[in-house]
Design a protein around this nucleic acid. Sequence first.
DNA 1: AAGAATTCCTACTTTAATGGTAGTATATCA
DNA 2: TGATATACTACCATTAAAGTAGGAATTCTT
Lengths: 147, 147
Amino acid sequence: MKISTKGRYGLRIMTDLAVNGADCCVSLKDIAEREHLSEKYLEQIINLLSKEGLVKSVRGAKGGYHLTRPPEEITVESILKATEGSLAPVACAEDNGKCENYCDCVTSFIWTQIYEATLSVVSRITLRDLAERSIATEKSGLECIKK
Amino acid sequence: MKISTKGRYGLRIMTDLAVNGADCCVSLKDIAEREHLSEKYLEQIINLLSKEGLVKSVRGAKGGYHLTRPPEEITVESILKATEGSLAPVACAEDNGKCENYCDCVTSFIWTQIYEATLSVVSRITLRDLAERSIATEKSGLECIKK
DNA sequence: AAGAATTCCTACTTTAATGGTAGTATATCA
DNA sequence: TGATATACTACCATTAAAGTAGGAATTCTT
């Protein structure tokens, strides 16, 4: 039941784009430096975001990435779905307990409820919320060791 | 964000004990046969449940395992915690956003909310609910391919 | 036209977790 | 004493996670 680095870094990439992407393009190099993450690894992750249409890439010098929509229209759900895959705790939870390959009939209602509870959290939070927090944290000068 | 077989099988073991453990001991062999799972693998899992005090073992012939408390006093939360470990989506979510090694400050509130939402689901459901469903499903003769 | 910056694409690597299997020792009942 | 169980330890195969590496293609700048 853990969120992987793809999901976590994905949120950081998107937040970075929301905060620093005012004038079009932000390069992965810049993001990697600011976030202290490997540029090459971020490349993989931003590809996932790109495939889902959450970011757009611009090739060549002065190129980079930018959001395709305003931050308030991008939910944490869509970012995590793009990077983590489904947030369902078991595969069949998405089909509301229906299952083809297997079925823990007795437990399916648990997974459905967890899934829905999770969705209700991440569908309410948008990238704008994260961007605002990011700016506020920066201003406060709060130290935060990132990994 | 997936529940592993340990958590899923753990629930099935416990449900089996709740349904079939009226007269003291149920052997792993019986559970493995009924649930179509490997006895040896279940051994590992039931050890986790045993360590947490959810089941008690009786060695030797006619031995086996039994619940230590009535099913209505055993939550799904305690079973999943014993078998899966923490249900927090990231390590720091348990400490309410406090972190020692790392901290995605901007996102910690997301993880906390997911964690709490998940807990509120699994803390409300007890083994009794599962046992009742199991008995009902059996009576209805519903076919369910288990894996 | 050249060179620098940048994404795009493919492949590889390392490490840890998952999902088991196997064998033997130990305890208990009949 | 023998059959039946759990207890304990070790091993193994497969997959996923996390990251690295190198070069091709594209575009801006000079």
